[in-house]
Each structure stands twice: as C-alpha cells, then as structure tokens.
Design a protein around this nucleic acid. Structure first.
Length: 308
DNA sequence: CGCTTTTGACCGGCGC
DNA sequence: GCGCCGGTCAAAAGCG
C-alpha cells in the first residue's frame, strides 16, 4: 500500500537526483551550442544566466523534495522503533501473554533473538531468560512470494523436511514446521507462515544454526550478496539463494541515528546540506534490495500496527 | 524402495 | 483440574 508509494517516491527521487546532476552538463554542452549559434554574446550570457537560475531553482526544489523524503523516512523509522519498543514493554508488563509460542508470533521484531554476542541490547539481556539458552538462535526472514502460491516453500539453500502443519489462532493461514534434512545431526528448525497482513509475504522463522554447509552452498554463498542477512553478530545462520530478504529492524538503531543526524539539521551551509542529501539519496537508492526490503518491512509493520 | 508430505493424535505449558 | 493452544509425533499416502 503505502510501501509501494514509498518505493515510488524513492525511485522518483533517485531519478530526480540524477536529473539534477546531469542537467548542468547538458546546459554547458550541446544546448548552448545550439542556442549560441543564433544569439549574440550578450544574449547568450543572459540565456546562460537564466538557464543557470532555472537549474538552481530546480536544484533547490529537488533538494527540498529529497530532504522531505529523508525526513519522513526518518520519522517513520523512529515511529516504527517506538512502536516496537512499546509492544516489547507491553509484553514484559503483561504476564497474561506468557505463552512462548505467542512470543514467537507477536514479536514481530524481525530479529534475531539469539545467544550471539552482538545482537544483545540491554533490554534484551534483561528479558532473556532461560528460554533462549535452550533456543540457540532465532532469526526471521520475510520472503515475498506470489499470493496464489500456496506452498510454504522458502528457498534458502538448505534442504528441509516438513514434519507438521498447524493453523494457529492469530493467523488463518497454516503454519508449516520444517526440520533440516540433516537432522538429527543438524538441529535447525524453521516455521513458515504467510503474513497475516500481506498474503504475498511469507514469514520464515529459523531456530538454531546449521552445523553443515547447505547443499547448494556454492550458489548460496556466492549469491548471498543479493540479500541483507540478519546481522546477528556471527555468521548468518541462513544463507539464502532466493529472493529472501531479512530485515533487522531493531538493529536500525545505529543506522537510525545516522539517518537522523543526516536529516536533522545542523545543516547550515547549502553545500553541506546538498552533500548530505546526495549522500543519503545515494545510500538509499544504490542498493537494489533496499526498496523491496523497505516495502516488506513497512507493510508488515503497518498492518501489525493497525491490528493492535 | 526410500524419501517426503499429509494429517490426526498426542503432549506439555499456560491461563482461568 | 480443565480447556486452550502451539509444537511434535507417527502412520498412511504420495512420489520419483
């Protein structure tokens, strides 16, 4: 929904940016030569100045657009973070929701709750009881699939054996349970279920780490640059060869700070502002997976927000 | 024939 | 203690 418009605006801005960068070259080049043939030097200068002003205006407009876009992006991101913190606090405070399976479900943190060093924040370490000592590592992957595709198959390079399927209370679509085919030597399990919000999105929850290489290891490891894996501190447990996009929204703290610093103005000189905007835009747009990941993440969060 | 999938039964945790 | 619920088991069916 909104995510698509986000994507659109990102693309728009991306193209706008390149337009801004290219325009001056054009004016200095062929355009003026064409005009210059007919105009006197004075007129030519006038036209040049006019053109320059026009480009400046355009530049300012585009810069404004980008700044606005970046600010709303940052705002939305911090909103999401607040929301997630809120839901986490609620969960901690309400003992009525203790069922651990539900914690797996509600906890839309999209995150690794694991024993790996780097993923543990202060809050996490507080609410990390024995549960997670037992459960090695939990990561979650959002995979965009065709809505008509009813097979809950997430191609991640590993081979899985389905051992159960259940319809859970809070989601009409069935949840499938998989074990790694290398079990029992490999203890990894995964649960796959369509997102209750967006039927096109399949949520795969991985528990544990593979203690072996994936059958399709060659492709999986070499192709892994296509996706952003869960930065759980250690090597990502899931090597995806498909269109798997894993988002760690809670991990966005540092990135968020960065984004905030970039869009939040101590921006005094227009050069700095322009640089920041350009830097922001390029960092946002150069990653082809960014828009898809953002779309999936935002759509997921938005719906869960509505349903709360 | 061996492996995978399906599906109903069963189990254990949790709230009331 | 009972019922609900998520997770797992295991027999039967399906498939290459």
């Amino acid at each position: 929904m909104n995510s698509s418009s986000w994507v659109d605006s990102l693309d728009l801005n991306a193209s706008a940016r390149s337009l801004r960068l290219e325009t001056p070259k054009e004016t200095n080049g062929s355009n003026l030569v064409v005009f210059g043939r007919k105009l006197s030097v004075k007129e030519e200068t006038g036209a040049l100045v006019e053109e320059l002003n026009r480009v400046h205006e355009e530049n300012a407009k585009l810069t404004q657009m980008l700044t606005a876009m970046c600010e709303s992006y940052t705002a939305l991101q911090s909103q999401l973070r607040d929301l997630m913190n809120k839901t986490n606090v609620e969960k901690e405070l309400s003992p009525t929701r203790k069922r651990k399976s539900e914690s797996g479900n509600n906890d839309d943190n999209v995150v690794v709750v694991g024993n790996s060093e780097s993923s543990s924040t202060d809050e996490e370490s507080i609410r990390k009881p024995r549960e997670e000592i037992i459960k090695a590592k939990i990561s979650r992957a959002y995979v965009r699939t065709d809505a008509s595709d009813t097979s809950l198959v997430v191609k991640d390079g590993y081979q899985w054996r389905k051992y159960g399927q259940k319809v859970t209370r809070d989601n009409p679509s069935p949840r499938a349970y998989f074990k790694c085919s290398f079990a029992p030597s490999c203890p990894v399990k995964k649960k796959v279920q369509r997102s209750v919000d967006d039927q096109c999105v399949v949520v795969a929850t991985y528990e544990g780490e593979h203690n072996h290489l994936p059958p399709s290891q060659m492709e999986a490891t070499s192709g892994s640059s296509r996706l952003s894996s869960v930065p759980a501190g250690s090597a990502a447990p899931v090597k995806s060869s498909g269109p798997t996009i894993t988002l760690d929204l809670t991990k966005s703290k540092s990135g968020d700070e960065e984004a905030r610093n970039q869009s939040k103005p101590k921006i005094d000189s227009p050069e700095i502002k322009q640089y920041l905007v350009e830097h922001m835009a390029s960092s946002l747009t150069k990653d082809p997976n960014f828009t898809a990941a953002l779309a999936a993440a935002i759509s997921g969060r938005m719906f869960s927000t509505k349903s709360n």
